[in-house]
Design a binder for these strands. Structure first.
Lengths: 208, 208, 208, 208
DNA sequence: CATGAATGAGGTTTCATTCAT
DNA sequence: TATGAATGAAACCTCATTCAT
C-alpha cells in the first residue's frame, strides 16, 4: 500500500507537468491533473491538501533536482583549475536546464507567490554555497565576497539561459550559449579575482 | 470629451499597478482595478476589451519605458571608450529597474503567455539593437556577433538584477550590484573582443 | 427640424433591420443600431424610450406594410370569381413575404413577448377582415364562419411560406409554392363552401 | 452514481420548461433554471456546456416527441382510405401540439438561431418522410411530389395550429380547428391528386 | 481508500440607460 | 438637440473543494 501511494503520487507529479505544458499555468485545474494522472480528484486531494501545495511540491522537486546536479558538479571540481571549474559548472547547468527546458519554464511561470520564491531562493542558496566552497579551493585565487559572487554568477547564467530558451533556442544558439557562458563567467571571475589581487599585491603579478 | 478619456485610461493604468502590488497577479480582478481607479467596471471595459489586454498594455508601457531609457543611454555613448559605455548602460539599466522595482517584478509575474513574452522580446530586441550599434562604435575593438553578444549581456544583467531584487535587495546589495555588473559586462566584452583579436592577429598585439 | 427628425428616425429603423440581419436578434444592441444609423445612442433614446419600443415599432411598421398589401389586394378583388380572388391574394401575400423575406424572419424572431404578439395579431385581424369582406362578395358562394375561415387561410399560407423560407427556399421551391398555395386555398375554400351548400341544398347542384 | 445523474438531468430539463413558462425565453437564466431544479449552477454546467446547449437539448426532446407521435400515427394508417389517414394524422398532430401547447410555444420562441432551426427541420423531415410513405399507400391515388406535398401539409397545419394557439385558443376554436384542418388537408390532397389524374387520364374518370 | 457528483463563491463580461457637456 | 463616456445590475461560466457512497 506504501508502494501504491508512491506510484499514485508520482503519477500526479508527472500529470502536473503534462498539464502545465499542455494548457498553461492559468488553465491548470485540479480535475484536469487528476484526469491526466488517471485518478479522481478526490484521490488527488488525499495526497495534497490543496492546489497550491501540489504546484509547490512539483516546483520543489524540480528545483531540487537542478540544484543537486550543480552541487555534484561543484563537489567534483574542488581543487581544480578555475577554468576547469567554470567549464564543468556551465556544462552541468546548461544541461540541466536544457534537458527539460519546457518544464523549467512552465514551472517557473507558477512561481509568483512569496512561498514559491522562498523555495527557489532556498535551492539557489544551496547552489551558491556549493559554488562558493568550490571556488574557495581554486589555486592562486582569492575572492572578496564569495556568496555574492556566486549569486551574480548563477543569476547571470540563469538569465542568459532563460533568454535563449525564450527566444526559441535554435540549436545553433544553444551551442553558442555554452561557449559564451564560459567566457562570461571566466571574464567575471577573472575581473573579480584580479581586482582583488590588484588591491592586495598591486602591479606585481602580470595577468595570467 | 477627449480629456476625460485620457484621464480615465491613465487612472486605470495606475490602478492596475496598484492592485498588482497590493494583492498580486493572481488575485487581480477587473472589478478591483476599476474600484481602485475610481471608475466602474463598465468603463474599464470601454477601454480594454478584456482583462488580458489590460495587463498586456500595462506590461507594454513598462517595458517600453525601460527600453527607451536604455536606448537613450546607448545613443549618448556612441564613440566613447568601452569602459564608459559599460558604466553608462549599467547605470541606466539598474536605475530603470530599481526605480520601480516592485512594478517590474509584479508585471513580469503576469508575463507568462506567448503574447506577453513576444512583447518583452520585442522590447528586448530594441535594446539589443541599440547596444549593438553603440558597441560597433567602440574604438579599437571589434566583435564577431554583436546581436548575440548584446543578448548575452542584457539577459545576464537582467538575471542578476532580478535575482538581487527577489532576494529582498538590501541597499548594500544594490550598491554592490552596480559595481559587479560593470565587472561582469566588462569582463565579458573584453573576453569576446580579445578572442576576436586573437583569432585575427594571433599574438601580434600585446593586450593593452 | 421636423424633417430632420423624420430622416433620423427613418435611419434608425433601417439600421435596426440591418443589424438584425447582420448579427441576429440576441446580439442586437442599441449602441450597434445607433452606430449603423450614424447617430449616437443618446439620439436614439430621444426618439425611442427604450429598446423594446424600438423593436416593437420596427415590427409594427413591417406587419402594417404586409397587411396593407394584402388589404389592397382584397379590396381590388371584391366581386370577382373565387378562383381569381385566391390567385390574387396568394400572389400578393407571397410577393410581400418574399420581397424581403430575410427581414420578415429577422423581425419575427423578436416577436416573442405578449405585446409583440398583440401587434401581430392586430395586423392579422385586419387582413382577416379584409379577406372576409372580399369573400363575402364571391358569387354563388356562402361561408359559415368567415372570420375563422380567413384565419385558417392566412395562417396556413403563413406557415407554408415560412417553412419554405426556412428550408432555404431554392427558387424552384418558391415557384412551386405559389401554385400549391393556390391549390391549398382553393381546396379549402371549396370544401368549406361545398360543405355549406351540401347542408343547405343537399345534392341538387352538381359541383361546378 | 448513474442514477443520481439521471435524476438531476431530468430535473434540469423539467426546470427549464418551468422557467420558460414562468418568465419567458429572454428572462430565462441558468441560475434560475438551476434554482428551480433544486441544484446549483455548477451542477447544471456539469451536464450542459452552456446555456444554448441546454435550450437546444430541451427543444430537441420536445420536437422529437412530437415527431414521434406523428410518425406512429402515419405508420398505423398505411393502406387506409385517404380520408381516414387525414383524420388520424390531424388528430395526432393537434393532440400533440395542444397537450402541452404552452411548452410548444415557449420552446419555439427560443428557436431563432441556425442550430435550432436545423433541429426543427430535421424533425420536420422525419414527419414529412413518414407522411409521404403513408400517402404512397393510399388506394386509387397518386401524387406528383410527395415530399413537397408533405411539407406543404405540415407547415400549413403547423401555421394554423400556431395561429389558433397564439390567438388565445378558446376551447370552441380548438374544436373547430380539428374539423377545419381535416377540410384543409383533405381539400389540398384532393386538389393535388385530382390535378395529377387530370393530367394523366384527362376527362376519363369522373370525380369520385 | 477511492470516487465523482455536487457545491457556490467569485470572476469576467455585456449592455440598456443616463446625464454632463 | 446631440453626444458618448460612464454606470452598474445582472448574466454567464469556472473550478477548488467536499462528502456521501
Amino acid at each position: 500500500m506504501q508502494a501504491r501511494s508512491t506510484v499514485t503520487v508520482e503519477a500526479i507529479y508527472e500529470a502536473t507537468i503534462q498539464v502545465l505544458l499542455a494548457v498553461g499555468a492559468d488553465r491548470l485545474t485540479t480535475t484536469r491533473v487528476a484526469e491526466r494522472a488517471g485518478v479522481s480528484v478526490g484521490t488527488l486531494y488525499q495526497y495534497f491538501p490543496n492546489k497550491q501545495s501540489l504546484l509547490l511540491s512539483a516546483l520543489e522537486k524540480h528545483v531540487d533536482r537542478v540544484a543537486s546536479v550543480v552541487e555534484v558538479a561543484c563537489r567534483r571540481n574542488h581543487g581544480q583549475q578555475m577554468s576547469t571549474m567554470i567549464e564543468s559548472v556551465v556544462e552541468a547547468f546548461v544541461d540541466a536546464k536544457m534537458e527539460r527546458s519546457d518544464i523549467s519554464m512552465a514551472l517557473f511561470a507558477t512561481a509568483v507567490g512569496a512561498q514559491e520564491r522562498a523555495l527557489v531562493n532556498k535551492a539557489a542558496k544551496r547552489t551558491h554555497a556549493a559554488m562558493a566552497s568550490m571556488l574557495a579551493t581554486a589555486p592562486n585565487t582569492k575572492f572578496d565576497d564569495l556568496p555574492f559572487t556566486s549569486l551574480m554568477l548563477f543569476s547571470a547564467m540563469g538569465g542568459a539561459t532563460r533568454a535563449v530558451l525564450e527566444a526559441g533556442s535554435p540549436p545553433k544558439m544553444v551551442r553558442s550559449l555554452r561557449k559564451q557562458l564560459v567566457l562570461l563567467c571566466g571574464g567575471f571571475l577573472t575581473s573579480v579575482a584580479v581586482e582583488h589581487r590588484k588591491l592586495t599585491h598591486a602591479g606585481t603579478e602580470p595577468r595570467q
